[in-house]
Design a protein around this nucleic acid. Structure first.
Lengths: 208, 208
DNA sequence: CGAATCCTACCTACCGGACGGTAGGCAGTG
DNA sequence: CACTGCCTACCGTCCGGTAGGTAGGATTCG
């Protein structure tokens, strides 16, 4: 879970990356200057370029690592689960947990795509597509086997992912709510929205 | 629905605003220069400052108008509806419709808050809070009257609003899907997630 | 009525400053 | 003596914003 932090003495490159994550999250990529990153690392601006070829490369590195770890985490959480409902629950839970624990990186990955060069943009979008495919496959299977109501897979997958991102925006690590409690709320809401078991269009009587 | 466009000859200020919306949406606020806006309006950079006091003022104006119209649209759509389920459906529908029709402005309003001065930031956040309150009130009433399952009102309201924003990111006005069809999908999903009528935690047998 | 004045809506030219990035040097380590 | 990891000093560019001017239509006033 803790990347950018190696054992032993953390390298300056790691420090730069961590500071960049902090600043990009706080002020945005374009509003953050290289001198500012350097300043908070206690080094000069030019020294940044010893570790990274360009400002854009810092952004790209953050996004790449984050996307790889996000997908890896999901695969790990799905591993060994066969039941479709269990897989969907695990997927939502994994997504939310990662977004709460890695709040800043995922925020950057979601909102700073425009700072990337065309080539790097394509690379990140490809990783994102790969991640979405996993969700879409689960939803599709759920619909086909009749566990879920029939839905537009693409629209719903995107809706669910976006919905689960919401937590990362307001989540406060020092706040009252535990990560798993929040993940449970999203999990319940999503599953309720997907599962059969009620009659769509017909309002149940209050108190029923 | 069509603001920034007066009858008769549209003013240069309107043109600046429309061009700014286009560019802020396309490249982001910080990545857009005043000269660029001017260029696409066919005037010089300095002339922009005849119509707007600063670049930030353009952003603020866009956000303010958008938020006011968003809230006005919601109020209009809720007007006269008493039934809680109908109100929730109307609210979701209104939110989605507005975000699809005013894709670019709402995107800016959601993602470019950091470009605002502190005072303007507070003003926009206040408007946003006011809008969210309307949703929260509906959810709260639904829970209290037993129409909806008991939920964490704040978390769910935020989740629902974020989820409905998803459409505006991928929506293509020239695409295959009609605005109302998309709104219906979100409406159904949200209502299904909120309403009573299934037994949470118990998986219904496939085919049931 | 015509002359003087004002206002609108733009222009050219410029400012200080910050930005991303580079060149080249230097201290410490192996 | 080479390499690592940093430094100082500097570059050209572009930015938001300002100063000051001007064409021309509307308004005011002797």
């Amino acid at each position: 879970m803790l990347s950018y932090l190696e054992f032993g003495m953390p390298s300056m490159k790691d420090k730069i990356t961590r500071v960049a994550i902090e600043l990009f999250h706080q002020k945005g990529y374009f509003a953050t200057s290289v001198s500012e990153i350097a300043g908070q690392c206690g080094i000069q601006k030019a020294s940044i370029y010893y570790h990274y070829a360009s400002k854009e490369n810092i952004l790209f590195h953050i996004q790449k690592v984050t996307m790889d770890e996000l997908t890896g985490y999901l695969r790990g959480n799905l591993d060994g689960r066969d039941d479709i409902e269990a897989r969907m629950r695990a997927a939502v839970h994994s997504h939310v947990r990662f977004h709460l624990h890695r709040q800043k990186e995922t925020f950057i990955a979601n909102s700073e795509l425009r700072g990337l060069t065309a080539a790097h943009y394509r690379e990140i979008v490809a990783k994102r597509d790969e991640y979405e495919q996993i969700f879409q496959q689960i939803i599709r299977e759920g619909c086909e086997t009749g566990v879920f109501v029939p839905v537009d897979v693409k629209i719903l997958s995107y809706a669910i992912l976006t919905l689960c991102n919401a937590g990362a925006i307001w989540y406060n690590p020092e706040g009252r709510m535990a990560v798993d409690a929040i993940a449970d709320i999203y999990e319940t809401f999503v599953l309720r929205g997907l599962q059969k078991g009620q009659f769509p269009g017909i309002t149940p009587k209050p108190g029923c």
